[in-house]
Structure formats: structure tokens, C-alpha cells
Computed example of a mutant assay.
Amino acid sequence: MECSLECANRSSNQDFILLGLSPSPSIRNTLFAVFLALYLLILLENTLIIYLTCSRHELHKPMYFFLGNLSALELCYVSVTMPTLLMGLRLGACRVSFPACMGQRFLFLALMCTKCALLVSMAYDRYVAVCCPLHYPVRMGPPVCRSLAAGAWLGGLGVSAARTACVTRLARCGQRVLDHFFCKALSLLYTVLTPACSPVVYCLRNREVHDALRRSLC
């Protein structure tokens, strides 16, 4: 009881101060321009994929259904992390409340877990298409695809809620994690560079997508 009261008193007014990637204003302004351009590129790429998978009849297939869901997830994913990053680069050190930090962490983890589940669903779709082609229309019909996508989103939310609860408990009891340059670089890799490259790797290099885009432009 005494330990829990001590932890609660110590963290009752706990805020986080984001120091940004660099203390130099000139470097922060350069990074702000770079990451803003990447953010807009990610929004454009994924919005284009969602539009094509919804509007073009030839892309109404299970694989592109999952790719459309993946693009929608990427839009949410970067919109959770990038605005905070851009704000820190633009304003310098800024204060973030503990509930706001935990809320952002919950959404981030939920979308990460959902992405993993969607990738598993896409792998299963390709497995059925290659190994069981005659059963593919039955095993990967629209009801099955919708169930897999809904399960991925709900499963991601459930896992994220459990992990965030554990992290919140550790943070309120004074647990700290050392921040290193490697951690910052790794964070930028999966919060900025991966969402920027994913649409190109998964969809925009596909010939069917190229043909659908060409027909839409014509």
C-alpha cells in the first residue's frame, strides 16, 4: 500500500519533455522540411492506393483488399506519430502530459499489432492462391476477407490495450528507459522510412496497379 501511494504521489504531475532530434535550430528546420515532405508523400501514396482499390473493379480481389486496409492503417499510423515529431522539430523542446503520451502509445502499438496481423492475412492469402488454387474462391471469399481484416484490427486493439496497461504501470512506479542515438535512429526507421517505402514495395510496383492507375488517369 505504501509503495503504491508513493508511486502515485511521484507520478501525479508527471509530464514528458520532448527535446527533439537536435538542439540546433538550423538542423531542426532542415529536418522539419524533410520529414514534412515525407509525411505528405506517405499521405499521397496511401490515399492513391485506397482510391484505386476502391474505385477500380479489376482490383476488387482479396490481395488488394488487404493492401487497401494496409494503406488505411499506414495513414493512421503516421498521423499518430508524425505530427508530434514535426511539432518538436518546429518548436523545440515541448511538454507532453502523461495521459497524452500513453494515449499516443496505445494507438501506436494498436496499429503496429494490426499491421502484423494484416501481413499474416496477406501471407495466408498468397499461400492459398499458390498451394490451393482450386479452393481459393471459397477459402478467400469476401466474407472470409472481411473477417480476417476485422480480426486484425480488433486483435491489434486488444494486444495494445494489454501492453499499454503494463507500460503505464511501470512508468508510474518510476521505471525509466535510457535514450540513445541508436534508439532515435531505429524509431525514425519504423515511424517514417518504413511507411514511406511500404506502398512502393507492396503495391505501386505492381503491374495491375499501374494499369489501373493509367486507366484512372485516362
Score class of each variant (00 low, 15 high):
residue 53 T to L: 02
residue 91 L to A: 08
residue 46 N to F: 05
residue 51 Y to E: 02
residue 127 Y to A: 00
residue 79 S to I: 09
residue 64 Y to A: 11
residue 28 R to W: 05
residue 31 L to M: 14
residue 45 E to S: 14
residue 51 Y to T: 08
residue 28 R to G: 07
residue 118 L to W: 06
residue 136 Y to K: 11
residue 61 K to T: 15
residue 89 L to Y: 06
residue 126 R to H: 00
residue 119 L to W: 06
residue 66 F to E: 07
residue 29 N to S: 14
residue 91 L to F: 10
residue 44 L to V: 06
residue 45 E to H: 11
residue 129 A to V: 02
residue 74 E to L: 13
residue 66 F to C: 09
residue 19 L to R: 04
residue 124 Y to C: 01
residue 36 L to I: 02
residue 32 F to Q: 10
residue 61 K to R: 11
residue 106 F to D: 08
residue 35 F to D: 03
residue 48 L to H: 01
residue 124 Y to A: 01
residue 56 R to A: 06
residue 131 C to S: 12
residue 33 A to G: 10
residue 119 L to K: 08
residue 28 R to D: 03
residue 94 C to F: 11
residue 23 P to T: 00
residue 29 N to G: 07
residue 30 T to F: 09
residue 49 I to V: 15
residue 125 D to Y: 01
residue 72 A to W: 12
residue 108 F to M: 11
residue 109 L to S: 14
residue 110 A to T: 13
residue 111 L to M: 15
residue 135 H to W: 10
residue 132 C to Y: 13
residue 129 A to S: 07
residue 128 V to W: 00
residue 125 D to C: 11
residue 73 L to Q: 10
residue 33 A to R: 15
residue 130 V to M: 04
residue 115 K to G: 15
residue 72 A to M: 15
residue 134 L to T: 12
residue 128 V to Y: 00
residue 34 V to H: 06
residue 102 M to E: 07
residue 73 L to H: 12
residue 51 Y to P: 00
residue 20 G to K: 02
residue 130 V to T: 09
residue 114 T to V: 15
residue 96 V to K: 03
residue 96 V to R: 05
residue 123 A to S: 07
residue 134 L to D: 13
residue 31 L to F: 04
residue 69 N to D: 15
residue 104 Q to L: 14
residue 70 L to R: 13
residue 41 L to R: 10
residue 122 M to W: 02
residue 87 M to G: 07
residue 102 M to I: 12
residue 45 E to D: 14
residue 27 I to F: 00
residue 26 S to D: 09
residue 77 Y to Q: 12
residue 45 E to Q: 15
residue 64 Y to C: 12
residue 67 L to R: 13
residue 86 L to K: 09
residue 106 F to N: 09
residue 83 P to S: 09
residue 55 S to N: 04
residue 35 F to I: 06
residue 81 T to R: 10
residue 29 N to C: 04
residue 82 M to F: 14
residue 119 L to S: 06
residue 89 L to N: 06
residue 71 S to V: 13
residue 111 L to I: 13
residue 29 N to L: 11
residue 106 F to V: 03
residue 84 T to L: 12
residue 56 R to T: 05
residue 59 L to Y: 05
residue 98 F to V: 04
residue 119 L to F: 07
residue 60 H to G: 01
residue 58 E to D: 08
residue 42 I to W: 00
residue 136 Y to N: 09
residue 25 P to C: 07
residue 84 T to P: 02
residue 111 L to T: 14
residue 32 F to N: 10
residue 137 P to K: 08
residue 55 S to P: 00
residue 48 L to A: 11
residue 112 M to I: 10
residue 20 G to W: 03
residue 59 L to H: 05
residue 80 V to S: 10
residue 120 V to P: 02
residue 96 V to T: 03
residue 75 L to S: 09
residue 85 L to Q: 10
residue 38 L to Q: 12
residue 126 R to T: 00
residue 37 A to E: 11
residue 86 L to F: 07
residue 116 C to P: 03
